[in-house]
Computed example of a mutant assay.
Amino acid sequence: MKLLKKMTMEIVLAGMLLADGAAASVTVGGTRVVYPLDQREVTVKLNNDSYAPSLVQVWIDDGDPNAKPSEVKVPFLITPPIFRMNAQKAQTLRVMYSGEALPQDRESIYWLNVLDIPPKANRAHEANTLSLAYRTRIKVFVRPASLPGKPEDAPAQLTWKLTASPNGKGQAISVSNPTPYYVSFSEVDVESTGHIFTNKRGGMVAPRASTILPIDAMNAVAAGAKVRYIAISDYGGPIDGDAPLGE
């Protein structure tokens, strides 16, 4: 047990060595996980695309990306939690719902973390090589049975309004979601008087909630503007749509 705790701590500390532009050797087979609550478990496939083995740790958090795996409290078990992945091999994760109470009238969201620790350099010419751990973090949508409607139809039911930017500079758009499904965006554009104002950072709106998305507009959006969006489906594909922008 002490050895496992020590290993877990070392892996978590290694996970802090993340760098922009790094590439993970271990990849997740999908951009999101959908967990139907009427199923006992779902599986997630990992692949090690490199020619070297990796040590991998996986865990689920409830929204805090800085939470340590030993401290998170979520209603899911994931196995195996720590394992070695040989080069050019695959590994299947089993995610199991523990049965704790969750809302039954809307989706809940969690995040799956996959921490990829490459092997240490063991050759003379690799002595000065810096190896970085890489963490992949994707959304886990927990979906109760018998929710009304279809998730792919949810983006078309959103309502959009022009609002002031939260920082007090310029304009933003407020999007309201009357459906029981989360809706994520990869891009949102506002077309107004021949100009296009873009939010390329995307965003997400929770079920039966609203959120504000910034746009690159300084009080330039006029009445009659239109929103064009790219939402993301359960399979990671695009759902293109447009809607009027209210005031």
Score class of each variant (00 low, 15 high):
residue 2 K to Q: 14
residue 5 K to L: 13
residue 5 K to N: 14
residue 9 M to A: 12
residue 9 M to E: 14
residue 12 V to R: 08
residue 14 A to K: 05
residue 16 M to F: 13
residue 17 L to M: 09
residue 17 L to A: 08
residue 18 L to I: 05
residue 21 G to K: 10
residue 23 A to T: 13
residue 23 A to V: 14
residue 25 S to V: 03
residue 25 S to G: 12
residue 27 T to L: 07
residue 33 V to N: 05
residue 40 R to W: 00
residue 43 T to D: 03
residue 45 K to R: 08
residue 47 N to S: 12
residue 50 S to P: 03
residue 50 S to G: 09
residue 53 P to R: 12
residue 57 Q to L: 13
residue 59 W to I: 11
residue 60 I to V: 13
residue 60 I to M: 07
residue 61 D to F: 02
residue 64 D to F: 05
residue 68 K to M: 08
residue 68 K to G: 13
residue 68 K to S: 14
residue 74 V to G: 02
residue 74 V to P: 00
residue 79 T to F: 08
residue 80 P to N: 05
residue 83 F to S: 10
residue 93 L to T: 11
residue 101 A to S: 15
residue 102 L to S: 05
residue 103 P to L: 10
residue 103 P to N: 11
residue 106 R to E: 04
residue 107 E to A: 10
residue 107 E to H: 10
residue 107 E to Q: 15
residue 112 L to K: 05
residue 115 L to M: 12
residue 115 L to D: 04
residue 117 I to S: 02
residue 117 I to G: 00
residue 118 P to R: 03
residue 122 N to Q: 11
residue 122 N to L: 10
residue 122 N to T: 10
residue 123 R to P: 00
residue 124 A to K: 03
residue 127 A to L: 14
residue 127 A to P: 03
residue 131 S to N: 14
residue 133 A to R: 01
residue 134 Y to G: 00
residue 136 T to M: 11
residue 137 R to S: 09
residue 142 V to T: 08
residue 144 P to G: 06
residue 145 A to R: 13
residue 145 A to Q: 15
residue 146 S to K: 15
residue 148 P to A: 14
residue 152 E to T: 13
residue 153 D to L: 01
residue 154 A to Y: 00
residue 155 P to V: 11
residue 160 W to G: 11
residue 161 K to H: 12
residue 161 K to T: 15
residue 161 K to G: 10
residue 165 S to W: 12
residue 165 S to F: 11
residue 167 N to W: 01
residue 168 G to Y: 12
residue 172 A to Y: 04
residue 172 A to E: 10
residue 176 S to L: 09
residue 182 Y to F: 14
residue 182 Y to N: 07
residue 185 F to S: 02
residue 188 V to Y: 01
residue 189 D to Q: 14
residue 191 E to I: 12
residue 193 T to W: 04
residue 195 H to A: 13
residue 196 I to W: 00
residue 199 N to V: 01
residue 199 N to E: 00
residue 200 K to R: 06
residue 202 G to S: 07
residue 203 G to A: 03
residue 205 V to P: 07
residue 207 P to A: 13
residue 207 P to Y: 08
residue 209 A to M: 06
residue 212 I to T: 11
residue 215 I to V: 15
residue 216 D to A: 15
residue 217 A to I: 06
residue 218 M to I: 11
residue 222 A to D: 01
residue 224 G to M: 04
residue 229 Y to C: 08
residue 235 Y to W: 05
residue 236 G to K: 06
residue 238 P to Y: 03
residue 240 D to C: 03
residue 244 P to M: 09
residue 245 L to Q: 01
residue 245 L to E: 02
residue 246 G to V: 06
